[in-house]
Design a protein around this nucleic acid. Structure first.
Lengths: 362, 362
DNA sequence: CTGTTAGCGCTTTCAC
DNA sequence: GTGAAAGCGCTAACAG
């Protein structure tokens, strides 16, 4: 830590007490004011000496860090960074800083990073949790640090709040859309990962099948390994080799949807004529001539914003009163694209985008 | 800041001084040792009380934060997060923490974040700098905080170190490859952005044209607006409508390369028959049936690692001696793919990958 | 309007 | 082997 000028030095130089200097520098006037002339002198000296306040000394003395920790499993995908952006947007306005930690889907690292967060005395935590880190978050809460889960959540951690896409609404929109296009045999492709969000989506899917009076058999829900192209490929091929294969598939994420679209290309199965595809996510397909996936937008920046608001609710109310955990489910819009509508329909819709020939989407 | 148990409380409970407790908790034994029995008692009590050290109090007292700031313009692309991962890898090993700030290509935000970094007393800064933030970094250095630029750099900030891809090596590899394939009319597509790295690549390109005895005219280097698909499209179409249009194009980034590939598809220009394409980046094209771009890998994790090492060099040597800035240029491997070789050639190469028909790359 | 005084939670000489 | 005491740089009552 470089030996930089402190408030005391300024005080000495200007012949005032550190108190006064502190007040000037923080623009706080308790009770009465500070003589403008005095303030000016201080400010000038501070400038001259290249003064920079020491955030941590401040935190120590004032017993508040104004720090909110954000934990995410990775930042390579769009999910995390869009959420983070949303979070920072609102936290910024309220002068809270965000401490970002990435744990790369590693539970040990997640634990270590959580420890660090606590050591750094974050006042709240927003997390995209790993599926089975129950105790770890429980512990954080026990330490008096509010937790808000985003995008995914851990049901067992019942004192934490959460913000996520409304799975029932999203699935209903997709299914309604597919149904209205005449699809009667629809399958869900999901991921083998103990995520509540994923389970919710599967549950919602079943509900919709029932609501629409559609058949539900062993092939209605297909699971693939998280992140494995090969596994997805195998599952998909198996699914499509069934006697009464589906005419439409719903996937739980854009990433998976894209992989499937790709694989369908290899399999020479035409989309959407032979198989329509819809997913949940929120990728931007503008400028992308190859992929055009019907999706329900997760509205990730909004998820981040709401999470930050939830956090602020705790932080503001900190005077003894306990704030009940709150669970927000966001409704996202369905955007119909070529993976369900086909090329023709889109030519009218997409104005700017030239429709070009695509292997898959023709 | 929650009122959590502190070292003093433990000391009281166990009937020892804070000094002793501190030593036990930090595993430090100055001179002699601490009675193992004492240590055990302390540790147990700490456990029982759920003690967590206060990072900032520690920093204050010990005059070191063990914090390294990392500034990046955004985290949506692969560049930033791959570099960050590399950085953290080596910093982790040396018990330094990294403080990540994203400034979203906004100079004001960059300035604000830099200020925060200094207030938080980071001991060094690694930055992916904005093209014209000269003074801002100069100021950081003036404050005694070493700066290492990654991927891009600011020449004017001459006391900063830097780590980047070796542009001359990279361009030479690309040009050599294209030349050996018979291309004699090669153009460079770059971005209108005052980045030293980009300028270096353009310079290297010119050198290579000269070395290979290839023609260099107004159309040899084409600039497009940063991030604008439309601008790229216009430039490309103009370029390709020239009487003696190039047979190969070299681009400064994978992102641009991908856009160009896309646009060529729309223009029904076959790759690589009518136009070969090579770029610099490091995207992974495994599992991607549509895009297959010949690129020189920037080795971003390596860039991060080297940057962290540079930082450590400063941090270790902090006993008065000034460390000279160092500039590291990394050589990346060229991976030949379908955008220069065509489908046939690749069928032999790519083992696992099924070659499928692609609109663009057939 | 400004100064005094007492810490925040921890480290770190130096003495016992 | 262990403790006393002096801070790190700053804030926050409470006086004046």
């Amino acid at each position: 830590m470089a030996k930089i000028v402190g408030i005391t030095e300024i005080a000495k130089e200007v012949g005032l007490s550190t108190t006064t200097v502190s007040f000037v520098l923080n623009g706080k006037y308790r009770g009465f004011k500070i003589a403008p002339e005095t303030a000016a002198r201080v400010l000038e000296k501070a400038q001259e000496l290249g003064y920079r306040s020491n955030y941590w000394a401040k935190s120590l003395a004032s017993c508040e860090t104004r720090l909110v920790g954000v934990m995410c499993p990775d930042i390579s995908g769009s999910t995390a960074h869009e959420i983070v952006k949303g979070i920072q947007e609102v936290l910024d306005e309220h002068d809270y800083e965000t401490l970002l930690a990435v744990y790369y889907w590693d539970r040990n690292k997640e634990q270590r990073e959580l420890d660090m967060m606590l050591e750094k005395r974050v006042e709240a935590l927003i997390a995209l949790p790993h599926a089975d880190s129950y105790e770890q978050y429980q512990q954080v809460l026990a330490g008096g640090c509010p937790v808000v889960f985003v995008s995914d959540y851990l049901m067992k951690v019942d004192q934490a709040s959460s913000v996520a896409l409304d799975p029932f609404d999203a699935i209903e929109k997709c299914m309604g859309h597919l149904h209205s296009l005449g699809h009667r045999k629809i399958a869900l492709m999901t991921v083998q990962y103990e995520s509540e969000t994923l389970l919710d989506r599967a549950e919602a899917f079943k509900q919709q099948l029932a609501r629409l009076n559609l058949p539900c058999d062993n092939n209605s829900i297909v699971q693939t390994e998280l992140g494995s192209f090969l596994s997805m490929s195998a599952s998909l091929r198996k699914l499509m080799s069934q006697p009464n294969r589906p005419t439409a598939v719903l996937t739980v994420s854009d990433a998976l949807g894209l992989q499937i679209l790709t694989e369908l290309g290899k399999m020479k199965i035409r989309v959407p004529d032979e198989l329509a595809l819809a997913s949940i996510g929120g990728l931007d397909f503008t400028d992308n001539p190859f992929f055009s996936l019907t999706t329900v937008d997760e509205r990730r920046p909004e998820i981040g914003r709401r999470a930050a608001e939830l956090v602020l609710r705790h932080l503001k109310a900190k005077k003894g009163q306990t704030v009940k955990p709150k669970h927000i489910r966001i409704k996202g819009p369905l955007t119909q694209r070529r993976s369900t509508l086909g090329t023709d329909a889109m030519e009218e819709d997409q104005g700017i985008i030239e429709t070009i020939e695509g292997v898959l989407l023709k």
